[in-house]
Amino acid sequence: MTTERWDNDPVLTVEHVTMRFGGLVAVNDLTFKAGRGDITALIGPNGAGKTTVFNCITGFYKPTMGRLDLAHRDGTRYMLERMPDFKISGKAKVARTFQNIRLFSGMTLLENLLVAQHNALMVASGMTVGGILGIGGYRAKEKEAMERAKYWLDKIRLTARADDPAGDLPYGAQRRLEIARAMCTGPELLCLDEPAAGLNPRESAELNELLLGIRDTERTSLLLIEHDMSVVMEISDHVVVLEYGTKISDGTPAFVQNDPRVIAAYLGVDDEEVEKVEKQLDVLTGEAG
């Protein structure tokens, strides 16, 4: 077993995480690491438990068992499984997007991005009291927040629509805005739940560019769930494959792509082929054992 890059400096370490809903085991003893500065993709067929993993990482669910360890660049560590969701995003700096976009649709694009900077602005406004009375450096801070919002609007090429309500945007733009909003929280790890779903090929290419930009310019690590294999293969540095809540493969895109278990589980095969692959697998595991 060779040590991969993500083993040396992981931003997120998932250890033996299990999530049960009543009798259903959605995630079963999952262990993987996401490297700092990597784009890590979590893939698997429908119902494999990918979104559940996301919800455990971001605190919307508490895992039944297991540990989730987040390490900042400065060495601070956070035990995510013990933190409430808003602290995971606020303190541990894990941002996320949602499978079915959750924008503040009645607020403008600019407002969406300002809300994302809530915690910083809250402190600057002296917990509102200073802001109301007009003392303290709130004005300057708000200006700064506007600049940051503008920076991200430029990045997602929606500056011209800054004062329009988010609900008015076309689908693809809403996805980009959701990513920009998550980035405005200044995250260490950005979790994207199917960012390419419903995008046309051009939008999909733009998205790849945006994500690579986030990795390289912002130095933010990314964890993404994706069905679109072209996106996964093109941009990810590391792929983890889930099936029925269990990890079946973990490695570089090239490695995973050629893993027979992944081919069988994920890409789908005829029944006879499954048998063939299973036989091969038996042989393989037999050899390994």
């Binding site: 941002a95 503040f104 300002l114 109301i132």
Partner: peptide, 29 residues
């Protein structure tokens, strides 16, 4: 009117729009 332009006021309105998204942005709902 002043509060609406403060972070707390924006957080209220964001809360009205989508509570889950608020929590995902680190807002103590």
């Amino acid at each position: 009117i002043r509060l609406r332009r403060m972070p707390i006021g924006r957080a209220w309105e964001a809360l009205r729009e989508d509570e889950v998204a608020c929590r995902s942005l680190g807002i103590n709902t």
